[in-house]
């Protein structure tokens, strides 16, 4: 079985889907001739032609809106937003246009499209090459959202996203692109959206993570074991709709939950997960839900190491939860 890094897994998923269905079309800035700034669409233009993988004018709003028109008409666009920090420029298109189309038209029009975008910090990208903007879509009915953490999941989830009839935002952590390698089968497999992955079983405390925070949680395991904490690690994978049964079952089992994400704490996805736990599992909890997050500041350049959740901060939260 071949080994791939994350961006190779993205490339492989796109390649297989473009071969499977001629309606799948990649578009975005530098997507065509150059094959993407991270090489996700490398070679596609030569292989599939100008109408299947192409460069657009420099406008995120335009990429999403033009892609939406294509999706309405029956193509399956995979629109690349070069950096997730620029997805804000297309926000109205995603929120009021793409996400609401099925609802406003009682399903007579819909937008099966994927909006892929590299996100995440720790790459010395400063304020606008580091963000994890998943929370701004949490309150948007009609959209699905996926954040994979490893090459195997990346391929399976991206293929599902492309085949899904609903619009899917697919954030790929650029810090993981070349840092994480794993076995990726070349056969046609998919991973269903909406299902979390149990990374590690445990009985004392649940760590809820996604994207690059999965690796962070795994790195913390030896120190957790030293403390005698048998942590369960859940990789959420799909942020919208998230896997509530898995979350609640794990909370019931361990009674303690720590959520880790890169985005700022206030208004982050961790808040929603905490609210669900408070609403539906408060009797099962033995400690308050803890959150380890980015700070409520814009993403700093020089101090990104201080800003990002770290093993130390994770351990502090675990200690606080265990001591409660």
């Amino acid at each position: 079985m071949p080994k791939m890094n994350m961006v190779e897994a993205v490339h492989q998923a796109l390649l297989e889907e473009m071969e499977r269905d001629e309606n799948v079309v990649c578009l975005g800035e530098d997507v065509g001739r150059a094959g993407g700034v991270f090489h996700a669409t490398k070679g596609f233009q030569d292989r599939f032609g100008e109408n299947r993988s192409f460069d657009t004018p420099l406008s995120e709003l335009g990429i999403v809106a033009f892609g939406m028109g294509m999706a309405l008409y029956g193509l399956r666009p995979v629109a690349e937003i070069q950096f997730a920090d620029f997805i804000h420029l297309a926000y109205d298109q995603i929120y009021n246009n793409v996400a609401h189309m099925s609802y406003r038209s009682v399903g007579t029009y819909h937008c099966p499209m994927v909006i892929r975008s590299p996100h995440g910090g720790g790459v010395r990208g400063g304020l606008e090459h580091s963000q994890s903007p998943e929370a701004i879509f949490l309150n948007c009915p009609g959209i699905k959202m996926v954040i994979p953490s490893n090459p195997y999941d990346t391929k399976g989830l991206l293929k599902s996203a492309i085949r899904d009839e609903d619009p899917v935002i697919f954030f790929e952590h650029k810090g993981l692109y070349r840092a994480v390698t794993g076995e990726v089968p070349l056969d046609d497999y998919t991973i269903p959206l909406g299902e979390a992955r149990l990374v590690k079983e445990g009985k004392d405390l649940t760590l809820v993570v996604w994207g690059a925070m999965v690796q962070l949680a795994e790195r913390a395991v030896p120190q957790l074991e030293e403390r005698g904490v048998d942590a369960e690690i859940i990789d959420l994978r799909t942020i919208l709709p998230f896997d509530k049964p898995t979350l609640l079952a794990s909370a019931e089992k361990t009674g303690r939950v720590v959520i880790v994400h890169e985005a700022p704490k206030t208004g982050g996805v961790g808040g929603e997960l905490s609210a669900v736990l408070a609403e539906e599992a408060i009797d099962l909890l033995e400690a308050p839900v803890m959150r380890v997050c980015g700070y409520d500041t814009p993403f700093p350049y020089s101090l990104e190491g201080t800003y990002m959740p770290s093993v130390e901060r994770l351990l502090e939260a675990v200690d606080a939860s265990m001591a409660y």
Binding site: L61, G69, L72, Y73, N96
Partner: peptide, 15 residues
């Protein structure tokens, strides 16, 4: 906000 959608439809139809 629908103006670019007409451009996208017009592209899809052409392709």
């Amino acid at each position: 906000t629908r103006i670019p959608h007409a451009a996208g439809v017009g592209f899809a139809a052409r392709s």
